[in-house]
Amino acid sequence: MAPSLSDYKTGVHNDWCPGCGDFGILNAIQMSLAEMGVARHEAAIFSGIGCSGKTAHFVNVTGIHTLHGRVLPFAQGAALANPNMRIVAVGGDGDGLGIGAGHFVAAGRRNVNMAYIIFDNGVYGLTKGQASPTLKLGTKTKSLPSPNVNYNVNPVGLAVTSGFTFVARAYSYDVRQLKDIIKAAIAHEGLAFVDVLSPCPTYNDINTRDWYAGGGTGGGDGAERHSRIYRLEDEGYDPVVHFAGAGELNEKLGQALSRSLEWGERIPTGVFYHNETVTPYDGRIRDQIRNYAENPPALQAIESGGRATTDVSPMLDELAA
């Protein structure tokens, strides 16, 4: 019997604040796995530390709740040891773009076959609202004693320039679009990144649900409001690299970067960049290890009846005196 949505939910109490954007992301992940029919034992959620880190406990597949900033190394190790698993890594923007930023860039260069979702709210929630890497310079949320003195990281732009081969942005209150993007990210051959704008109702009183919905645009309440969020696809934007020629590649990277800089009145969502012409890391491994896909590290036979079965005599012969 095909699994249903409820099969992907655990009974673990969810202690996120009422109104948290993260609920939308959690639902979208569960719906994606259910709709894709991914068997529970064939998927694993890896998470970092922070509110988003608890996601691993709420999805009823194997969940590995790692350390602050380290979700990508753990997840890549698992994905490389058993490429048959569907690995989804999740974490906050402080986790992935502050303490874990080095791993973010290195992961892009590797392009391991998995998906990475950042719950992007601009604040460190569990430590009571300090500015996180995506909060804009000069922004003063209610939990900050003075305006943010650091320039913000551009998650989509950083992903595009680091080598991620599927880069998207979504909004946690548009669960339908979010779910479609997560499904595409999971299906993507290579490393996919989804930056999900997820309002923190407790500590970020600037980038609120109301703000994304158009609060503050048009100078007053009422009819003049318009949502700040728009979909790239509605403007005929084509993120796909079709031929891998240098000209096309530069054009696609350039347009993704350029769109990633839009903020304020108009905030794009959707797929910014999609390139399957780049060989994923497991393909690169197959150049060295011919049967990597059929016999990956985690599934290899290494003993028989408790005796080691690997033949080391070629190595020992090389060293014979």
Partner: peptide, 9 residues
């Protein structure tokens, strides 16, 4: 971190 992930696998 990777070695831990691989060991879990």
């Amino acid at each position: 971190g990777m070695a831990i992930g691989s060991s879990i696998a």
